[in-house]
Computed example of a mutant assay.
Amino acid sequence: MNKTVKVDSKSIEGIIYVAFLLGYLLQTSYLPTQFRSIRVIMISCYCVGYLFCAFKLLTSKYTAKCFVLTLIFVLTGIATLISNKSIDYIIASTMLNFLLVTICVKSISFEKIIRIDLIAKISFTLILVILCCCNVVKNVMTTRTSGAVRYSMGFAHPNRFGAMLFLIALYLAYVRREKLNLKDIFFQLFIFVVTYKLTDSRSSELGIAIVIIFTVLSLLHKRRKNKNFSKTQRYIIVIVAISMIAAMFYLAANYDSNNSKMSILNMLFNSRLELGGLTLKYYKPSLFGAGIQTYAWEDVLSQGMSHALVGSDILYLYIYLNYGIISLFIYLYVIVVAIIYAAKNDKWGCLSLIIILMVSCMENQYLPVASNVFVLYFGMYLKNPRMKRIQVGANND
Rank of each mutant, 00 (worst) to 15 (best):
T125L: 15
L219W: 09
V216G: 06
I330F: 01
K138E: 00
T33D: 15
L118N: 09
L26Y: 07
N97G: 14
V194T: 02
K388S: 15
I12Q: 04
A296T: 03
L26W: 01
Q365W: 14
F378C: 06
L265R: 04
L96F: 10
V194G: 01
S327E: 06
D313N: 11
V240S: 10
V211K: 01
E13Y: 02
L198G: 00
D184Y: 04
I122S: 02
V194F: 11
M305Q: 08
R272H: 14
E298M: 07
N372P: 08
L275N: 04
L328S: 00
A54H: 04
I116Q: 13
Y318T: 01
T232I: 13
L382R: 03
F214C: 10
S371K: 05
L251M: 09
A394P: 05
G304D: 11
V136Q: 02
Y333W: 11
T279D: 11
V68I: 15
A241M: 09
D397M: 12
F288T: 00
I208Q: 00
F155A: 02
K85F: 10
G289A: 00
D346N: 12
N228D: 13
L96E: 07
C47A: 14
N258A: 08
I108A: 09
V136K: 01
S201N: 09
Y17H: 07
F190W: 05
W348V: 05
A394R: 09
Y318M: 03
L180G: 04
I390C: 08
T80P: 00
Q27M: 13
L167H: 02
L382M: 15
M164C: 10
L165C: 07
K138F: 00
T4R: 11
A173M: 13
R234G: 14
A54Y: 09
A241G: 09
Y366A: 02
F155D: 02
S11K: 11
L206A: 07
T102A: 12
S312V: 06
I119K: 13
N345I: 01
S302R: 07
K85R: 14
T102C: 14
N226Y: 13
G349P: 05
N395Y: 14
L31Y: 00
L353N: 03
V149D: 15
Q365T: 12
T215N: 08
S257N: 11
Y235E: 12
T4N: 15
L182M: 09
L367K: 00
K388V: 12
R272L: 10
